[in-house]
């Protein structure tokens, strides 16, 4: 397995060497300017706004520097802590489940399924649904008085009377997670399958000849070599799950109470329902900070394992 690692290192060196010519940078400049305009400016403006008292006036939006006042308002709000807790729990549960199921699907797909293309297209159906549409469908299926799931539960005698899926905090959170897992597992499966297909068959043949069983092959070859794809999938999913908005917005409206109000929903409500632009952007900035820190942790975890074990 060492050859593959060596190849990737040479590739890295080749790219790192003499890249930075002036002409190259000059040619990149226009594109970088566009990127700066569409990403850096709004981010900077949001940070500015989160540190300001915001007035909506006849002549537009006025910002007056206000230090960390908005942040202290946010930290004192029980809604913020509730939203943070829900969002973290939602992210943790869905990412772990999507990962486990996605890996399983990818492995099945790689080894047993022959018309792979057909199956993959089937996989992608839930993922291709626009989230608002699938959220409406789930909301309809989970409706506590005429929903499909209710009929199933009663038909199987698993429940007496109606199950109000979206009516209690725990069940509502679980339903949202289920809807997300249903929708996004295929995405994880696809990314992991791509990683699996990139592992050269020779390595498996070699391990076979060395007498490695299926367990050893999986843990000592498949998983380690899958790490780059896993890192990518994990990062994508964490970022997306942490910013979840459309599912709870459509399915529960943040309820019951405000138990399923995600951080993005809180920021949206503060800004566009309550016109509290200062605290609203503070919530948005805090969300970015938290998700950034989480990403750093994930990358650090994977980097340690990538270089540590297989560099020698």
């Amino acid at each position: 397995m060492t050859p593959t690692v060596r190849v990737s290192r040479t590739v890295r060196r080749r790219h790192g060497g003499h890249g930075g010519s002036l002409a190259g940078h000059a040619m990149l400049a226009p594109a970088l300017l566009v990127v700066a305009a569409v990403t850096l400016f709004p981010i900077g403006y949001a940070i500015d706004m989160s540190l300001s008292h915001v007035d909506l006036g006849l002549t537009g939006v006025h910002l007056r520097f206000d230090g960390f006042h908005n942040y202290s308002v946010v930290f004192q709000s029980p809604q913020f802590w509730q939203s943070l807790l829900f969002t973290v729990a939602f992210t943790a549960v869905t990412v772990v489940l999507e990962f486990a199921l996605g890996l399983l699907l990818a492995l099945l797909c790689k080894s047993w399924v022959r018309p792979r293309g057909a199956l993959m297209s089937l996989f992608l159906v839930p993922w291709a649904f626009i989230t608002v549409v699938s959220a409406e469908l789930w909301g309809y299926m989970l409706n506590g008085s005429y929903g499909l799931m209710d009929a199933v539960m009663q038909g199987l005698h698993l429940a007496q009377g109606n199950v109000v899926w979206l009516g209690t905090p725990t069940l509502a959170a679980a339903s949202l997670m289920a809807a997300d897992v249903w929708k996004t597992t295929p995405f994880v499966a696809l990314m992991l399958l791509a990683g699996l297909l990139m592992i050269p068959d020779e390595i498996y043949e070699a391990s076979d000849m060395d007498g490695a069983g299926p367990g050893a092959t999986f843990f000592r070859i498949t998983l380690p070599l899958l790490r780059p794809s896993m890192l990518l999938a994990l990062l994508f999913r964490t970022l997306q799950a942490f910013g979840v908005f459309d599912l709870p917005f459509v399915m529960t409206g943040g309820g019951p109470g405000s138990s399923t109000q995600s951080l993005s929903m809180l920021a949206y409500n503060a800004m566009f329902r309550d016109f509290d632009f200062g605290p609203g952007t503070a919530v948005a900035v805090l969300t970015v900070v938290v998700v950034f820190l989480m990403s750093l942790v994930i990358i650090a975890m994977f980097r340690g394992q990538l270089t540590g074990t297989y560099d020698a």
Binding site: P169, P256, G257, N269, D274, D276
Partner: peptide, 22 residues
């Protein structure tokens, strides 16, 4: 002008009581 927040304080808490969680 803070009515949307007043209303949300009403409906989130009344809803939680209707659901029996408080």
């Amino acid at each position: 002008p803070a009515y949307p927040k007043v209303s949300s304080a009403i409906y989130t808490n009344i809803n939680a009581a209707l659901a029996g969680s408080v």
